[in-house]
Design a protein around this nucleic acid. Structure first.
Length: 296
DNA sequence: TATTTTACCTGAGGGC
DNA sequence: TGCCCTCAGGTAAAAT
């Protein structure tokens, strides 16, 4: 499932290929890939054709490609979205939804293919607006702007402009299980179910501990482990369980073999040996060690 | 206002 | 072999 490390791998892969490239043509094969776009498929194709892409930027799990004016192509991979770099005229991908043909001044012609099995992901053309804090909108560009669709998303914990004081304040005011807060992209972005479970396991915090009951020492530990797990996953190219998440060349990441808690129900906790448990949590699951991660 | 639930979607895998 | 059921989960809208 694409979370921050996976999306960053995709962003970094797109960056050299799209920066400075001109859009030769756009094909929308499935309009469900444009659920966040205000116009239809024809509008998307028309507004993008002939334009030049100037960067690849990411905040949390959102990705955008600024155009040569105040617009940007915004992308979210959802559960199963992929952005792939292909040769022009390459055969269709299995769940291909949108194809953008580009001409790059150095690399020549190529295609950016958006494929998405479950169609939770989407592309859209959106307007860039100034950031509230004046800092760069996200990783990959120094421009202090974000698409309007991303403006409500908090900065992610690996962003140099991440407002730690704001995060701590928000956490202290929420009478909600801490894992819910980690998954709330308006408080801290980039974390999904996998890395939430991993970070909480590493910080020895029960996922259902109320956020407003966490001592500041525990918050420090949690934030440090969130950053550590995201950075380790990034270094290993992200987490892949199957063909769902891949980089722009279609290759899987290696972090799945480094997971300590997520998906390891019944297996011994790597720290204390107690069998890990899985509990139902807001239409998904939480994995944790019942001994190391005691409920407060 | 703050928090919780639901809709959206397809394919893999288990049970029978 | 094939059918039915459950599960996976990010986001935003709807409900409480």
């Amino acid at each position: 499932m694409p979370e921050l490390p996976e999306v960053e791998v995709v962003r970094a892969g797109l960056e050299p290929a799209v920066t400075g490239a001109r859009v030769l043509g756009v094909e929308v094969l499935d309009e469900r890939a444009l659920t966040r776009h205000s116009g239809g498929g024809e509008d998307f194709e028309r507004r993008l054709a002939g334009r030049t892409l100037i960067a690849a930027v990411r905040r949390g799990k959102f990705l955008w490609l600024p155009l040569d004016d105040d617009d940007a192509v915004v992308g979210h991979l959802g559960m199963s979205g992929q952005l792939l770099l292909r040769e022009p005229g390459a055969p269709r991908e299995r769940h291909e939804r949108v194809r953008i043909e580009l001409a790059h001044p150095v690399h020549g012609e190529l295609a950016v293919v958006f494929a998405d099995q479950r169609t939770f992901g989407s592309l859209a053309i959106d307007v860039l607006v100034p950031t509230g804090d004046g800092a760069a909108g996200g990783a990959g560009s120094s421009a202090a702007s974000v698409p309007t669709q991303v403006a409500h998303i908090a900065r992610d914990p690996v962003d140099p402009a991440f407002d730690e004081a704001r995060f701590r304040t928000a956490l202290g005011r929420k009478h909600v299980q801490v894992k819910r807060v980690l998954l709330d992209q308006t408080v801290i972005s980039g974390i999904g179910n996998i890395y939430a479970d991993e970070a909480l396991w590493a910080a020895r915090i029960h996922p259902e501990t109320f956020a407003d009951a966490l001592p500041s020492r525990a918050v420090n530990r949690m934030l440090a482990e969130v950053r550590a797990v995201l950075e380790r996953a990034l270094a290993e190219g992200g987490t892949s369980f199957d063909a769902q998440y891949v980089n722009v060349n279609g290759q899987a990441g290696y972090f799945a073999r480094s997971l300590q808690a997520y998906g390891r129900t019944g297996q011994p906790c790597p720290r204390c040996g107690t069998p890990l448990v899985r509990v139902s949590f807001t239409n998904r699951s939480s994995h944790f060690c019942p001994r190391c991660q005691r409920r407060r």
